[in-house]
Simulated assay, not measured.
Amino acid sequence: MSTTLQVRQTDLATTRLQTTEDTALADGQVRVRVESFALTANNITYAALGEMLQYWQFYPTGEAGWGTVPVWGFGTVTESRHPDVAVGERLYGYWPMADQAVLTPQRANAAGFSDGAPHRAGLHAVYNHYLRTRTDGLYRADNEDVQALLRPLFITSWLIDDFLADQQFFGAQRMLLSSASSKTAYGTAFQLAQRGGIEVVGLTSPGNVAFCESLGCYHRVVTYDALEAQLDGATPSVYIDFAGSVGLRRRIHTHCTGLAYSCSVGASHVGDLGGAGQLPGPRPVMFFAPAQVKKRHADWGAEGLNQRLVAAWNQFSTAASAGPQPWLVVQRHQGPAATQALFATVLAGSGDPRAGHIATLLPG
């Protein structure tokens, strides 16, 4: 039997647990027990933008209106009818919010393989690739939870920083990051703060100011309600929007007359999403991480890209998990009901920003 957490696509607060009989594997398929995955605001973005960016298509439910939110984490192969994938192999990748997944490996090599399921053929390769932990340069057995929580987000953060640097920051001197307490935002801030001549400003709610300031990667932290009073609108700036809030975006675009570029990344404020409409200043542009991966793969080659990522990841993951007050404190949630409750909590945007949630639908 397999259990999956499904979400109503037009009302993310409505969820259900579906249990189905296992089907026999076809030749070339493998069954993976999904043992642990992270649940963060990033997954809420996947759901909120599921139709636009095809996230619902990775693990279709077969029933109109219901979707399975993809998650990053670890699994172990429990059954294999593929000659190049062994039972017992541990994999890192993009899973359904379920207790198992059936994959159709193709292009298998020492590093991993891609899922060759027909319905995933047109989806981006970054999300279709599964890594064997025994050969993965970023993998460490003693910090799997940190990897599941921060690795996919940090790769996006690293690519945002790399993209902006590649564009000479559009001539701006100040980076404005909304949802500054979110993991993707502070990963981006961590990278940006290492560059000279750029002021990194975190925008957040009053309750998250102390947390954002404790990270040490924001030069300033400004509350949403005070941004007009505390920010000089004429300073050449880039807005990196992790919130997706229409109202906040309009305020930034209206107040910041020196806005050079507006970069839309996330959708953590799901109650206030919508189109940009007619805004003053530059038109917001959606950041799509796989496009920057493709560019740098062409520029540096796979090995060059991987070396840079590994070095940056090691520095960031150490900073995030070290010291008397780590940026991330792992909380575990075991079983279908606990995972369903956790999804509601993360969707509501409540909770301690320092908490990192690791879940499994496997029973305790």
Rank of each mutant, 00 (worst) to 15 (best):
G67D: 13
F74T: 14
H357G: 10
N314I: 04
G266K: 00
G171Q: 11
C256Q: 02
G323K: 08
T15Y: 07
H129R: 06
L203F: 01
A165Q: 07
N143P: 03
G73R: 00
V346P: 03
V329F: 00
T254M: 06
A344I: 12
L103N: 03
P324N: 07
E51Y: 04
R31G: 04
R132A: 06
L176I: 05
T235L: 05
V69C: 11
R251W: 03
Q334N: 12
N43Q: 14
L25G: 02
Y92S: 10
A98N: 08
G187M: 05
Q106A: 15
Q307D: 15
L150N: 05
L159W: 07
S350A: 14
T14G: 04
S179C: 04
T184I: 09
P326L: 00
L176R: 00
W95R: 11
P280S: 05
D232N: 15
Q167D: 11
I160A: 05
S205E: 05
G207C: 04
G304Q: 05
C263K: 04
P70I: 10
P236M: 13
E89A: 12
H124P: 02
A180D: 01
D27A: 09
L259R: 03
T223H: 00
T156H: 01
G274S: 11
G171Y: 01
M1Q: 08
L5C: 14
R132Q: 09
A165V: 07
L159T: 10
D27S: 12
W56V: 09
L91G: 05
M1W: 12
R354K: 02
F242A: 03
L177R: 01
T40L: 10
W313C: 11
G364M: 04
F37W: 04
A47R: 00
S157G: 12
V330H: 02
Y130M: 10
E63Q: 10
P282R: 12
T76I: 13
W158L: 15
Q307Y: 07
N306A: 13
L248H: 03
